[in-house]
Nucleic acid binder design. Sequence first.
DNA 1: AGGCGCTTGTGAAGACGTGCACAAATCGCG
DNA 2: CGCGATTTGTGCACGTCTTCACAAGCGCCT
Lengths: 230, 230
Amino acid sequence: MARLPEYLRALHNLAESGHETVSSEGLSAAAGVNSAKLRKDLSHLGSYGTRGVGYDVALLIEQIEFVLGLTQRRAVALVGVGNLGHALAGYDGFASRGFRIAALLDADPSRVGEEINGLVVRHVDDLPTVAAEESLAIGVIATPAAAAQQVADQLVAVGVTSILNFAPCVLSVPEGVDVRKVDLAIELQILSFHEHRKASLTALPATGGSALTALPGGFATTDTQEAIGT
Amino acid sequence: MARLPEYLRALHNLAESGHETVSSEGLSAAAGVNSAKLRKDLSHLGSYGTRGVGYDVALLIEQIEFVLGLTQRRAVALVGVGNLGHALAGYDGFASRGFRIAALLDADPSRVGEEINGLVVRHVDDLPTVAAEESLAIGVIATPAAAAQQVADQLVAVGVTSILNFAPCVLSVPEGVDVRKVDLAIELQILSFHEHRKASLTALPATGGSALTALPGGFATTDTQEAIGT
DNA sequence: AGGCGCTTGTGAAGACGTGCACAAATCGCG
DNA sequence: CGCGATTTGTGCACGTCTTCACAAGCGCCT
Ligand SMILES: NC(=O)c1ccc[n+]([C@@H]2O[C@H](COP(=O)([O-])OP(=O)(O)OC[C@H]3O[C@@H](n4cnc5c(N)ncnc54)[C@H](O)[C@@H]3O)[C@@H](O)[C@H]2O)c1
Ligand SMILES: NC(=O)c1ccc[n+]([C@@H]2O[C@H](COP(=O)([O-])OP(=O)(O)OC[C@H]3O[C@@H](n4cnc5c(N)ncnc54)[C@H](O)[C@@H]3O)[C@@H](O)[C@H]2O)c1
């Protein structure tokens, strides 16, 4: 499930604050999900809690990390060291969550040789050499959309089977290669949609509402996080 | 639906390349989804295509932009001008997709006053003043996780009802406020999970496989993009 | 004008995810 | 040792999303 990483983060927080066991209720609150859902997820992965007590935090962390394949630290290749690439290269949140940036690559000759966070930017054509040095598990694409497909092909060619794509475009890859996309503009547009919906709901009941303004309204967006708290 | 922005991007690409009409088949390929799903989505929003021909690209763009509430350019406040915040502030992809970064805010006095992309960084405590100057629609949080909740509260206090959160933590907000989260580490962990699954699938059939290695495998991750093309 | 090919819109079936509610299990305490 | 409090694991029902398949509609060509 896609919620496992969320649980993992919550568990790490709990472990740091000294908890040894957690109830499904407590953990679900920390992760922002329904407690029944969490129990089903956890049971689904075969993990055992003890009834009347809860889950052993350390054991559960170990279990989830195993299922996520985080027992080995995976090597990440970052292609496109521009605006966004710089921020990613300097981010310490990857190292602390089981990943290691193994290489920075760019096509711009003026960027090659630059050192960021102790890593030297290499030319993207050196990718085969880099891949030979160590086994790359994941490729991150932070190039303009126009170059993304070509970079993806290069990554696949050297044996990368998982790609995280920041460029706003659809990549076509052979079967067996997984692609996940992060598009900030899409996130903003979804929020914009909610704004628009909220505005219509408060405005319409007063006015009659034109035919055009009468949008269905009953739309479902894959909610990342719904309203919680008071 | 959360797919509308994806359609919109594909439509803009098609419009630039001179197409006047698109079939559901063509558009679905460009957006990377099933054609039946696309037709249902489009019909769901009341938009009319003409049978035997397809959809009018310009009209459809207009329709979707209306539903998403992009007819008005929305003002975005970016809080936390650090590593990631810099990249976001310098990104031109927001402006071209209907958004306008209206303010850059940070708590660090040494950052206040800095100019990025023609915008001056202001102190986060000036938020009420900024909100008074122009109506903020969306707040983006790019601060460390420890500060995120406090910033969210400040944003809500000045009337922001949509928040995009980059900090790896769960925000608690009053009802009526929408929160979307982007967590890169989670994306990487999901890819890691797929790597692990793929590795198990190719290794297991040969060896007997220990009890621990026998993970269910039939997991479902909310697929951003599945394998397409040959 | 009529037929033919193409494309949309949608009904229905199936898969899937979600949440309730409760039985089974475990611990602590008298 | 037994009982109650507590918490897990799960059967079940419900709503949603997905996909197939096909009828209805439109334009074009003859
Ligand atoms: N900056 C942001 O905040 C932001 C936000 C969302 C999405 N994005 C997307 O991320 C991508 C990168 O954005 P950016 O702002 O960093 O752009 P950028 O122009 O600053 O950086 C792009 C980098 O990619 C390199 N590059 C170009 N072609 C290449 C190739 N074939 N192989 C290797 N490297 C190549 C360039 O030399 C450059 O260094 C874009 O697709 C953008 O739409 C950026
Ligand atoms: N850099 C990345 O690539 C990246 C990737 C994924 C997630 N993130 C997350 O994004 C967030 C920011 O990352 P970063 O690398 O830019 O960190 P950073 O430390 O470089 O920047 C954080 C900024 O927030 C400011 N800040 C701190 N407290 C504040 C407050 N109360 N109000 C306003 N501003 C405040 C700081 O002054 C600083 O400028 C973090 O939560 C991080 O986990 C970053």
